[in-house]
Amino acid sequence: MDKFTRTLSLLGAGAAFVVAAPALAAPPSTTAVVASPAATARAQIVDPLTLTKTSDLDFGTLVKKTTLGAAETVVIDESGVVTCTTNLLCSGTPTAASFDVAGSADQVVKVYIAASTLTAPGGATLTFTPSSSAVTTSPVLDGSGNASFKVAGSIDVASTTASGIYVGNMDVTVDYN
């Protein structure tokens, strides 16, 4: 009985010591503060873009010859030159559409042009298709933040295309690249 009691109290002391040990015995941190390799934070601040039309697109006058049958594609290029087709007569003063875009200097801008519908007074329609170069154009704003670009494209005219003055709106959107 005597022996038993003494053994118990030794155990009790041991348990208490173990609980206290971490605070007493844990080695102080000897590792130095480690810094990461230099990290970089970035931000690009730009002015809002403005888009202004400086010229409408005009194919001029296209006269159907009697020999015109299936649709022929009439193309206008960025300098406003119309490539007339075999069975059409082209005249007038065609012009490509042109726009001024302004924003922050040296930025690249993306241009989005959708195909548009031209409508004549009787309700007949023609589809204007922007040229592939117009849809891929990426003007670069100059040191003052300005650039301009032109829109070229084509329409299809067949013998069945009604006569009239076809007019429509072209949706053009610009955004920073």
């Binding site: 941190s29 590792t31 990461s36 990290a39 690009q44 730009v46 002015d47």
Partner: peptide
């Protein structure tokens, strides 16, 4: 009204407790 490309360097530190 500042515009342009902005960059800054910094570090993150770590040590064992």
């Amino acid at each position: 009204g500042a515009d342009g490309n902005f960059r800054g360097d910094f570090q993150v530190d770590v040590d064992y407790l």
